[in-house]
């Protein structure tokens, strides 16, 4: 363990930890845009600058490892001024159209502008004007809002190994780009979007779906697709799913795949079955029926078959999609109520 002092408070953290980690342990808030504990230290946004006794310049706390007897200052007038200048600079090259931005209310840049009370800006000048022409159906890329924190590039490289995007150009023209600036062509896992601190990366799938409404409800649950069992959070407005994301502190660390992140539309589909259907005549059409009618019919026919042909003339197919409780009740129904072990599911397929 390494012992150090941060803002006159002593803390001891494990070797190799960064100053920022240690400060967070003391619940000291240091602003960041490019930091993500799931990614390698980067030190690009410069907001997490701190002063270390004996060092001539401030250092980025997210990239500087702790050292024994280090004395760190995280907040003073000078650091405040530096952070404020950086934010002013970022905002001097940002559309600042929060009124219509998908990420308003869920935007780190907006939060910081608010904390630092940046109503005025000493700087104005040329702003980037990149055309948006990416035709992919999942991810909206508005590079004018990008603060170049590099998280999207890093997650695509470090986590996904896909490397679909990288930095291109220099100076103010620096931007995150696909190879040859073509349309994004990747696995569309949306990890980039999930780590973006601004409105630069949002989803076309839920654009305008009401993220900003006060009545969005968040429900932690499990992805309905493969067996990885990723944790997801459903965002719903009344009885409509409007977005899916995943918390960074869960087993899958917030990472999802294209299906888990974007494949929720089926829940809202107008094709959903909404009433029992019965085929009243052989070879006739399926017609709407009441629950009472449907359940009575099934109970009657099952009893009939069991009576005539024995319980083993009936069988049930359970599912790898429904819950444990439902599968349990289903096999219990067949074994205890019908009286057969003819019960299986799709594991073989």
């Amino acid at each position: 363990m390494i012992n150090l002092t941060i803002d006159e408070r002593k803390v001891s953290v494990k070797e190799g930890a960064m100053i920022l980690d240690a400060a967070r342990e003391l619940e000291i808030f240091i602003p960041t845009l490019c930091y993500d504990p799931r990614l390698k230290p980067y030190g690009g946004c410069r907001l997490c600058l701190v002063e270390i006794e004996g060092m001539s310049r401030p250092v980025s706390s997210c990239t500087t490892p702790v050292a024994e007897r280090m004395v760190v200052t995280t907040h003073n007038d000078h650091l405040y001024r530096l952070r404020r200048t950086i934010l002013e600079l970022l905002l001097s090259d940002h559309p600042n159209d929060c009124m219509v931005c998908e990420r308003a209310g869920d935007c780190t840049l907006q939060d910081l502008a608010y904390f630092y009370g940046l109503r005025d800006n000493r700087f104005r000048g040329e702003m980037r004007k990149f055309e948006e022409h990416d035709a992919n159906p999942f991810i909206q890329r508005d590079m004018n809002k990008c603060v170049l924190c590099g998280k999207c590039v890093r997650v695509c490289d470090e986590v996904m190994g896909v490397n679909a995007i990288d930095f291109a150009y220099r100076g103010l023209s620096t931007r995150i780009s696909t190879p040859y600036e073509k349309d994004l062509d990747c696995e569309f896992c949306g990890q980039c979007m999930s780590v973006c601190p601004t409105g630069a990366l949002t989803s076309k799938v839920w654009a305008g779906e009401g993220r900003r409404r006060m009545d969005v409800k968040y429900t932690d649950t499990i992805c309905p697709y493969c067996g990885c069992g990723c944790n997801i959070t459903l965002h719903s407005v009344r009885d409509r799913i409007v977005k899916v994301n995943s918390r960074a502190d869960n087993g899958n660390k917030g990472w999802l795949c294209v299906k888990g992140r974007f494949g929720y539309e089926f829940v809202n589909s107008p094709d959903r079955l909404t009433t029992p259907l019965i085929r009243r005549e052989k070879n006739g059409d399926l017609e709407p029926a009441t629950w009472n009618e449907a359940i009575s019919l099934i109970a009657g026919r099952f009893e009939d078959i069991r009576y005539k042909h024995g319980p083993d003339a009936l069988a049930g197919l359970a599912s790898g999609r429904v819950t444990n409780e439902e599968n349990y009740a289903f096999q219990k129904f067949f074994r205890a109520v019908i009286g057969t072990n003819n019960i299986d599911h799709c594991a073989r397929l």
Partner: peptide, 9 residues
């Protein structure tokens, strides 16, 4: 290189 805002902007 564009990595940090003070230099880039």
């Amino acid at each position: 290189c564009g990595k940090c805002p003070p230099c880039r902007i």
